[in-house]
């Protein structure tokens, strides 16, 4: 029982990372209709900026996190402004390819600036743990879950109750009608990218503070958040969070019981479990758990 709960806890922590990234995917997809493959690059960028602020410049960790998120947000908005703005109205294929190209540009840029070495981010959590009723809970995992919850709640408050959130929902629903009401689609697009980048940066920093440390391949975890987005439904923010948690849980449980139940499937089968879940959900419910059913008349 303890082992099960321990795995569930690990899964929640991992799922929170996925949830943050998937939420970023959904925010951009809803606003601009683009699936952003470069999210992993923004995640890595945010994590490395966090390293710079926290370790190189020796700032307080909380300040470093906030600064890194803000810097990543600016970078995200800049990418939208410089590259993606030119692609408005182009076929979705071209736009997807652009974001893939960006992903493959950002990673070498990061290695060129920060190098290949595995870096340790100075953080107040380290490997401290608290023991609750026999469960050993990592302080970092607890903070990851707490920060994610705070970020998600903050996002939903902003999205549902602020004027700009209303503008974003209006643009997602019908860009032309929103324009006619005086909503600036440009600002909505830029802010969507900024929010997604900030969420990715938060995920990146909490991940980098963990046992794996910080390496240039950290951004690849964002690819595993695609299944989370698909599972939840591409256009549902709630679904993204739910999907992220489910994927994280299943992955952690598969890893936990690898030796007992999944030995036949080969080593590290947990890495591909998110994709298998994605293929399964696409067969059964292509629009995801909470997504809008795509209606086509033919």
């Amino acid at each position: 029982m303890t082992a099960l709960l321990q795995n569930v806890f690990a899964g929640l922590s991992l799922g929170c990372t996925y949830a943050l990234v998937a939420l970023g995917f959904v925010v951009i997809y809803k606003a601009t209709g683009v699936i952003n493959f470069a999210q992993g690059g923004l995640l890595a960028l945010g994590a490395y900026l966090g390293y710079t602020f926290s370790t190189s410049l020796a700032m307080a960790f909380a300040v470093a996190v906030v600064l890194a998120c803000l810097a990543a947000a600016v970078a995200g908005a800049a990418v939208e402004r410089i590259v993606l703005r030119r692609m408005v109205g182009q076929p979705p294929f071209a736009v997807i390819m652009i974001t893939i190209g960006l992903l493959f540009v950002i990673e070498p840029v990061i290695t060129a600036i920060w190098g290949f070495e595995n870096l340790q981010v100075t953080n107040p959590w380290n490997i401290d743990t608290v023991t609750v009723g026999g469960l050993v809970l990592g302080v970092r995992d607890l903070w990851t879950i707490g920060l994610t919850a705070a970020a998600v709640v903050g996002f939903f408050l902003f999205f549902r109750h602020s004027d700009f959130g209303l503008a974003m929902r209006a643009t997602a629903f019908d860009p032309e009608a929103a324009l006619a009401q005086g909503i600036s689609a440009r600002r909505v697009y830029a802010v969507s990218w900024a929010i997604a980048a900030a969420l990715a940066a938060l995920a990146g920093i909490t991940l980098a503070a963990g046992p794996g440390g910080l390496s240039p391949s950290i951004g690849f975890i964002a690819l595993a958040a695609f299944p989370a987005m698909i599972l939840g439904g591409v256009d549902s923010p709630t679904g993204a969070v739910l999907g992220g948690l489910v994927i994280g849980l299943v992955e952690a449980l598969t890893r936990g019981y690898q030796d007992h139940l999944f030995a036949w499937a080969g080593d590290n089968v947990s890495v591909i479990v998110p994709y298998l879940i994605m293929i399964l959900i696409l067969l059964v419910r292509p629009y995801g758990l909470l997504g809008t059913r795509d209606v086509r008349r033919i």
């Binding site: 699936i35 493959f37 979705p92 294929f93 997807i96 690819l223 695609f226 299944p227 698909i230 591409v234 499937a265 080969g266 080593d267 590290n268 089968v269 890495v271 591909i272 998110p274 994709y275 298998l276 994605m278 293929i279 696409l282 067969l283 292509p286 795509d294």
Partner: peptide, 28 residues
């Protein structure tokens, strides 16, 4: 048949998964 009944973006994501699933197969 699994991937192409989905339009546009999905194929890119599913085939992305295919690369990882394939890599797992080749290793095992």
């Amino acid at each position: 048949p699994f991937t192409l009944r989905l339009r546009g973006h999905y194929l890119a994501i599913v085939t992305l998964g295919l690369v990882f699933v394939g890599e797992h197969l080749w290793r095992n």
